[in-house]
Design a protein around this nucleic acid. Structure first.
Lengths: 163, 163
DNA sequence: CCCGATTAGTTGTTGATACAACTAACGCTA
DNA sequence: TAGCGTTAGTTGTATCAACAACTAATCGGG
């Protein structure tokens, strides 16, 4: 009945630590951004993805897939960002079903002024305690896991590409 | 004005992949547990922490800190689990302000029958794509990050301990 | 022994996400 | 060009988490 392949002690310890970090990290990122920019990490991520896109514009579907959001979720978030003046919706010329989300100048400035604090948080909490070799190992290991979780390389498409 | 220490290309790539995994993993864990056991990952985690504790019992405060939950959040979750018969609240004898949360027999059975599927999901999505060396590196790197994020070793106290 | 401060926990409200249902537009085929 | 299936996006509802306010019990001086 029980043909479960349980984790070895080494695997268990690695997994336990990993899942702890996965639980803790979002809270760290969210609270710094919330405090300093009144942005959730996801909202910041949406703005950042747009800021790196040609014309600072992406289709809703493309943006959803790049941020791993469902379309309904993204639609709500973009509505909020639109109310705050950071994003603009424009009709898509080629396909009248589609909607383009464009980063406004105010949105661009928001990203520019928010990024340093965010980077500092990442550096302090994640990169700082790591050696150069650790960073290389992290990159390799996460690359392998990511290949499993996101084989299509949809997530964060602008930056993640290996090729 | 801009004395930000930006990320090097290597750091950026490692971070980008890491944050992608951090975004994707909770959804994977949640949906498997929701589908197979009607439990969120957090609910499962609460039950699992209790199952590993002496007398299958923990104070609310201790359970909150071990699961990185605020007390209000935990209180609500325990209420739900109590309604479903998996957990019982009992008054604490030594400190009448305190409440003990105890895993019931039904809760224990729930953990026992849910664990294999969960472990299988973890194995398939995280451990499978990794070599033995990768697992060791993951353990080391996460240990270092965790030491920064959770210096008190409160999270998952039963298993994470190094000593 | 009593009063302020702290600790433990619960409850209510507000905001965000998931899920489902819906509208609108495209595209293929007959 | 009519109709069916698919794709793009929005809107409404139910659930869960964060935050604040609250109650109750303990602790630590005077």
């Amino acid at each position: 009945m029980d043909d479960t392949r349980w984790l070895t002690p080494d695997e268990l310890r690695a997994w336990t630590r990993f899942v702890a970090v996965v639980e803790l990290l979002p809270g760290i990122l969210d609270s710094q951004l919330q405090r300093d920019a009144e942005l959730s990490h996801f909202e910041y991520f949406v703005l950042a993805m747009l800021s790196e896109s040609p014309q600072r514009t992406l289709r809703m579907t493309g943006l959803a897939s790049a941020t791993n959001a469902t379309l309904p979720r993204l639609s709500h978030v973009v509505s909020r960002l639109e109310k705050r003046g950071f994003v603009e919706r424009t009709a898509c010329a080629e396909d009248r079903r589609a909607t383009n989300a464009t980063l406004t100048d105010a949105g661009w400035r928001k990203v520019v002024e928010t990024a340093p604090g965010h980077v500092e948080t990442v550096r302090e909490n994640v990169l700082e305690p790591l050696t150069e070799e650790d960073v290389a190992d992290l990159d390799r290991v996460m690359g392998r896991v990511l290949a499993k979780l996101d084989p299509e390389h949809r997530f964060n498409a602008a930056v993640t590409r290996t090729d």
